[in-house]
Simulated scan of single mutants.
Amino acid sequence: MAALASLGVVAATGTAAATVSGDGGNRIGVLTGGGDAYVKEGGLSAGWIHELAGVRQVALSGDRIGVLTNSGDAYVKEGGLSAGWVHELAGVKQIALSGNRIGVLTNSGNAYVKEGGLSAGWVQQEAGVKELELSGNRIGIVKQSGEALVKEGGLSAGWVSELNNVIGLDLSGLRIGVLTAGGDAYVKEGGLSAGWIHELANVKQLELSGNRIGVVTGGGDAYVKEGGLSAGWVHELAGVTQIALSGNRIGVLTGGGDAYVKEGGLSAGWIHELGGVTELALS
């Protein structure tokens, strides 16, 4: 199985990659060990549709699906699961989707975002970037230096510095989450200059969706909280390498490559989705 840093999760010992959480859609995506991307739509027991082979990242948002191939080509489709692919850019190491925005991070560390149709023009956001995140009208980056910055509004809006010594960033609505190099997870809510709330220590992945916050600890325990930033944690599962959130869904990937998703409350039962999985994404 690939290392955590290549699975679209935030690892305290590696470089962060794209978020794998959504904001209330009904799609589930997986990437298998052989590099095959599958997506399902509807209920947790719906059938899988094979999307593409030779894939190393899958991203979901609304009715859009994005993939990054092993050769570094970013593709996005819009509409049904069997819609045709549109080639977005070559030389890419991360893709991000949110609403009608598409973001890519190139191998040279340049972050670009487009807004509108799949063939819209790119707007360069920043150079020297190691992670790019999108949510609504917010764009977030982590610089190679470890500085996290977020902008709000148009693609040419100005950046606000959020925190230094950051290895992972996640955005959802009015919430911003960061994971520091020391494994501390912080979340803020409201404006870009709001104060931080320390959520948990010894964290290796942080994910946000709506009013839920999810973490995977250094020991492989997945926890989720719902409500305010100081709400209590609910233990979801042990032996976890990745967590994903979307609306009232929670997904986890175990160390053995099994993907599970639950729907409803934090203590709902798990549904086994697929084995041999290296990445899980929700929309």
Rank of each mutant, 00 (worst) to 15 (best):
M1K: 14
L4R: 10
A11R: 07
T13N: 13
G14V: 03
G14A: 08
A16W: 09
A18S: 15
N26A: 15
R27T: 13
T32K: 07
G34Y: 12
G34V: 06
D36T: 15
Y38E: 02
G43M: 02
A46D: 15
E51D: 13
G54A: 14
V55S: 04
Q57F: 02
V58W: 05
V58F: 12
A59P: 01
I65V: 15
N70T: 15
S71F: 06
S71N: 12
A74G: 05
L81A: 02
S82R: 01
A83S: 15
V92T: 02
K93W: 00
A96R: 03
I102Q: 02
Y112W: 02
G116S: 04
L118C: 06
S119W: 00
A120G: 05
A127D: 13
G128Q: 08
L132A: 13
E133V: 15
I139V: 15
G140A: 13
I141S: 10
V142G: 14
G146N: 11
A148T: 06
L149F: 09
G153P: 07
G153R: 01
L155H: 00
L155M: 07
L155A: 06
A157S: 14
L163E: 08
L163F: 13
N164M: 08
L169R: 04
D170M: 04
S172Y: 00
G177H: 09
G177F: 05
G177E: 12
A181D: 14
G182F: 00
G182L: 07
D184A: 07
G190S: 13
I197D: 00
L200C: 03
L200E: 00
A201C: 04
V203I: 10
K204Y: 02
G210T: 07
I213C: 09
G214F: 12
G220Q: 08
A222V: 12
L229C: 04
L229M: 06
S230E: 13
A231P: 03
A231Y: 09
V240Y: 01
I243M: 14
S246K: 09
N248L: 14
V252K: 03
L253C: 09
G255L: 12
A259K: 05
V261N: 05
K262L: 10
G264A: 13
G265W: 12
L266R: 10
A268C: 12
H272K: 11
E273C: 07
V277F: 04
E279S: 10
L280H: 10
